[in-house]
């Protein structure tokens, strides 16, 4: 070995007092939360026989397969229509939310804030609002999914617009193209793969959400599931759950395959 490089740095060093204090505080908060939430694993054991009894009754009953299938089709239609409208509306929203395309900082911040707000409010709350507005049924569900999709795609489309290579837009600006042409000819084609990816995730998300929306009366298969559970018809409920699983699984596989081909 040649001459020494000086003293080797220690393999381990004590964390700084601030980091240590934060870590201890987090640990204390976690322990306090466990106590506050009355988490008693014993109850899992005590309630296990009752759970087994319900599970025993959950042998799928396929006698209502045809009417349930129509509800399932309605669920899928709600998801696709809500998502399609949401994706289209997300594009202008994302343009205003993207730092490099918004007309000014205020519009950028305002649109980003609105998109975050839309995403923060749970889908069941949106559904209840739209039920008040347009009444019970799939229309309220579709409106909920449109808003949910805008919250999701609006943010990720905006990120995609911000992350595109700024060279081609600069080249088109330099040759005197209008902003709309610069966006359509340079930014949009570059962002399209990321946007397609996001839109496919949005479809998956909408399909899953559309199942739950029926629980509050916003159309789709959820209405049937809620009725079956409330009437203790666990055989019907289990059939609906199996059906929903098959549909969500198929949509996720299809979307995954499509994403792999982008």
């Amino acid at each position: 070995m040649s001459e020494s490089h000086g003293r080797l740095p220690a393999r381990w060093s004590w964390p700084r007092p601030g980091s240590l204090l934060t870590f201890v505080a987090l640990l204390a908060f976690l322990a306090w939360s466990l106590a506050m939430l009355k988490i008693r694993p014993g109850e899992l054991w005590d309630g296990f026989p009752a759970m087994l009894e319900v599970l025993g009754q959950m042998r799928p009953n396929w006698d209502r397969f045809v009417p349930i299938s129509w509800r399932m089709l309605e669920t899928l239609q709600m998801a696709l229509v809500g998502c399609a409208i949401g994706v289209v509306l997300s594009v202008p929203v994302a343009v205003l939310a993207a730092k490099n395309h918004a007309p000014n900082r205020f519009v950028h911040a305002l649109t980003r804030g609105l998109v975050t707000f839309v995403r923060t409010v749970p889908d069941l709350v949106w559904a209840l609002l739209f039920i008040v507005w347009v009444g019970l049924g799939p229309f309220a569900g579709v409106l909920t999914l449109v808003v949910e999709t805008i919250g999701f795609c609006g943010r990720f489309f905006a990120d995609a617009f911000e992350e595109t290579d700024q060279g081609p837009p600069e080249a088109l600006t330099a040759m005197g193209a209008r902003n709309v042409s610069v966006f359509a000819c340079a930014t949009l084609p570059a962002a399209l793969p990321a946007m397609t990816n996001t839109a496919l995730f949005a479809v998956e998300k909408a399909v899953r959400a559309s199942v739950v929306l029926g629980l509050v009366g916003a159309g789709g298969i959820g209405v049937e599931l809620k009725t079956a559970m409330e009437m203790f018809q666990y055989d019907r409920a289990s059939m609906i759950i199996a059906y929903v699983f098959a549909m969500v699984f198929a949509v996720e596989r299809l979307s995954g395959w499509l994403r792999s081909r982008i």
Partner: peptide, 22 residues
């Protein structure tokens, strides 16, 4: 007015700045 003047000047960059997917 600015776009009209820019239209008469071609700018060639070090990096070609083409849109790769088109």
């Amino acid at each position: 007015g600015l776009r009209r003047v820019r239209a008469r000047v071609g700018l060639v960059f070090q990096k070609h700045n083409l849109v790769p997917r088109l």
